[in-house]
Design a protein around this nucleic acid. Structure first.
Lengths: 117, 117
DNA sequence: TTGACGTATTCCCTTATGGGTATATGATTG
DNA sequence: CAATCATATACCCATAAGGGAATACGTCAA
């Protein structure tokens, strides 16, 4: 098997920095494709392709407005990611880190004088 | 160019479900590779390969213990992801009321120095 | 209608994935 | 030393990525 498709889920879709940029821009409000093209400094086809991926995982929604297509953010699919990450939040808190170090030291000490079995 | 390497950053590393599982397991404590092999139901080489990726983005640390290698979690590289996602938290909490005002302001500011139309 | 504009799709190309399988490396025991 | 356990690496393969460039499609203006 190859790597999972970028359209598999929000995790994969958002792994691409350009797509994160797009979401960041759309967080400020609806925008047509050409706006994004200008702001991202990318060629139009690549932007459209990124938008397609985001659409497929429902991170953006489209609305036709004349010959333009207005894209807007739909952040809901990001919630699962946030939830998953929140479970690790304690790990990077200082109190936890302190404890971690203590445990590490204990382990090291143990290794030194516990060479019997 | 092809897709960014899985070892580029935590975003890419964590896009793979198996690697998320591994982190979840290691969150409960240090474990040798064979433990993970059993728990994941994966072949040993694939587990080692996933662990290599996680090591390269510093999401896990290793410690030699006899002929075993004890892997442990280092969640810190996940913090940036969590931070990025937190900016969107309001979106799925339906708490647009407060945020809307900020967004409107941003839009106005942008209109001034942006050369659209 | 024609033509310009805004956007999407297609094709080419290089690169790397992740699983499977075989084998190499390292440490421990006898 | 050899044999064995624990883990890492090397290969092969099918798949798809993301950028570049060309082109197709849909809408609006004249």
């Amino acid at each position: 098997m190859a790597r999972a498709a970028t359209t598999t889920d929000a995790f994969n879709a958002v792994a691409e920095p350009r797509r994160r940029q797009i979401l960041d821009l759309l967080a400020q409000g609806e925008r047509p494709v050409n706006d994004l093209v200008g702001l991202l400094g990318l060629a139009q086809p690549q932007v459209s392709k990124h938008l397609r991926v985001l659409r497929e995982v429902d991170l953006v929604r489209v609305r036709d407005e004349g010959r333009q297509r207005m894209y807007r953010l739909n952040a809901e699919p990001l919630k699962p990611l946030h939830d998953w990450l929140s479970r690790y939040e304690a790990s990077w808190n200082k109190r936890f880190d302190l404890m971690d170090e203590v445990l590490e030291e204990l382990k090291e000490t143990e290794k030194d004088d516990d060479n019997d079995h």
